[in-house]
Amino acid sequence: PPQTPVRAAMNTIQQLMIILNSASDIPSDNLLFYFNNCTVNPHESIVKRVENMGIIFKNKFAEAVGQGCAEIGSQRYKIGVRLYYRVMESLLKSEEKRLSVHNFSKLLNNDVFHISLLACALELVMATYASRNASQNVNVETDLSFPWIINILDLKAFELYMIVESFIKAEPSLTREMIKHLECCEHKIMESLAWQSNSPLFELIKQSKDREGQADEPEPANY
């Protein structure tokens, strides 16, 4: 039978639970294998970052929704972290296959990579639960919809944009609704958020122009 919005939202949550049922709150053995293969082992910094981001997330969630919902925020964060570790492992496996590389020291010690991956996982969890509440007309959440998550984690919109496609590729079990939501976030970023004055996008554009040697040509008037 055709899905009602409630059914669709519930299916998405169920799917998220199925995906994460077997996922772990801490790095898996496979992940530890990759960590140990790094020139600089990132294990400690990754776990510490998850802890620190957790404190920020829970405080901001409680601030936004109410102290009575602090435990809900805690649960959301926990689910997000499971998805973060699961997708990280899948990303590394595919990079290992693609590049025939086993030492991911630079990537795994890159702060922005981890925060954008965690933010993407948390955004998906937040959207999944928010859509359920919206379809049941339950107004529990104040506006925690995107870009709330990148604002509280102090992440640039374009930095999140860089991870979305790889995230979707790395997690084949995402539902249509989840993928649609991430695509919607991408559109919001490219339509406006990525063009804010402090966006790293401008530097990337400048670098690519420099690389193409266009810098020394006079810019055509229509620029």
Partner: peptide, 21 residues
Amino acid sequence: TQDYHFGLEEGEGISELFDCD
């Protein structure tokens, strides 16, 4: 994922995107 428009080119992955190749 059939609805999603993948745009990364061959040889572009997370390592290149985060400048860690």
